[in-house]
Design a protein around this nucleic acid. Sequence first.
DNA 1: GTCAACCGGATTGTCGACAAGAAAGACGCC
DNA 2: GGCGTCTTTCTTGTCGACAATCCGGTTGAC
Lengths: 242, 242
Amino acid sequence: MQRDSGAAPVGDAAGSGTPAGGGVPRRGARPETLDLMHALRGRIASHELPPGAKLREQELADEFGVSRARVRDVLAALEQRGLVERIPNRGAVVTRLTPRQVCELYETREVLEGLAVRLATANAPAEGWQDLVEAFGAPAERDIRSGDLEAYAELLAGFRRRVIEACGNDLVTALLDALHERTAYLVRRLILVPGRALDGLHEHRAVLGAMRRGDADEAERLKRANIRAAAACFRRYQRFVL
Amino acid sequence: MQRDSGAAPVGDAAGSGTPAGGGVPRRGARPETLDLMHALRGRIASHELPPGAKLREQELADEFGVSRARVRDVLAALEQRGLVERIPNRGAVVTRLTPRQVCELYETREVLEGLAVRLATANAPAEGWQDLVEAFGAPAERDIRSGDLEAYAELLAGFRRRVIEACGNDLVTALLDALHERTAYLVRRLILVPGRALDGLHEHRAVLGAMRRGDADEAERLKRANIRAAAACFRRYQRFVL
DNA sequence: GTCAACCGGATTGTCGACAAGAAAGACGCC
DNA sequence: GGCGTCTTTCTTGTCGACAATCCGGTTGAC
């Protein structure tokens, strides 16, 4: 791990918990190709390559010291993940999400994250969530009220990682990873909406409460409500965050 | 085009309703490449290429009259879809699903198909489902009791198509297409289990009843119950169907 | 007779070169 | 001067050839 450094503000959506998913097997086993894939995913997620940015094959090949064919393979993989769009004979550009697509992403995340929470609750011992319950208690509220949103974002990322890790379903893990990668920067902006961070905190407390009690169905229901609230927040403020 | 013929028993999971999904953009825009992709997906889904079958690049290139590079691209795309596994320097083989993976597929399908049904119910006029309600009535029961499972399978595929079409979420459409492609042959075998077809019919009647009433939440709940029942059936008879 | 090493054939992985197409600029015409 | 067209240049798409690797059979030694 230990990605280069700077310019990685987005909660490391690319590759932390799960190197490359399991249900959807990884593509490009070669080390250099993997680096390129990883780098591009990071740059797109962090908006170092913003939506609409053009990706020239030769340019990337030179920068990473690989052949153009390799770059092409990576671009094809990124296209399948929905991170770039390729127009025949015109090249690849970073995908720009439409409000409609964002809503679809939220709808899908709602059910998949709900599933992940349910599975995690059912599969892992309830006591194991105690540390998260405490982390989402007073400390988190203090962070938010003091404006330390970075700490809160990190907490959220930690929760996500733990759930995905515990759910024991590689397919869901891979799908959620791909989805989260496309919405991570949006989530970061939505945290700025007045009151959203605190609301989200309360919602997560409720979810964790159910998980701590071992109530998987209720945890799923609450997690879905949480994402629905986030989606509603997006719809209301989409003019600001898109 | 015009694949040989016969040996296409699986309910056309590859490409009927949606040419290649929307949220996850299609790969390989060239006509010949698309043909190859389509053909291989069909052969894998229909078990004309059974799990474990080896896919030789030159062989496919010769058969379809394309260059090996194109075959390679298609194999990479199939790998990302989870249809084949590629081992470095050893080639590509059709993926063999483990019982664990099948369970994961069912868990994922449960929430995604539930979502699709909910969206379809919410977005389309309730009266529009009347024809399906009738089709799943006496005629379907007659088909099943008379052993015409092909007709019932076709009915199920039609239901699926209509729901996916009406749900209006391209991302869910693409994901469900990919998932269904991997479980289609399993579903066909599970229909053989004594009583399963009739049970499934009753479950679908319930789902359609809720859709016909415009009760989206109940429809989702019932569709999830339906898939859970199918999953339970698989777990019980997995020794026979795998 | 069994095992190990070796070698030939086959298959995959990688690359560079060529061709086709599109964007930008130059030129001429109205 | 504005506009359409042609040319140039750049970018992408495609392919064939070469190198690396693996599988199977064969040969030799113990």
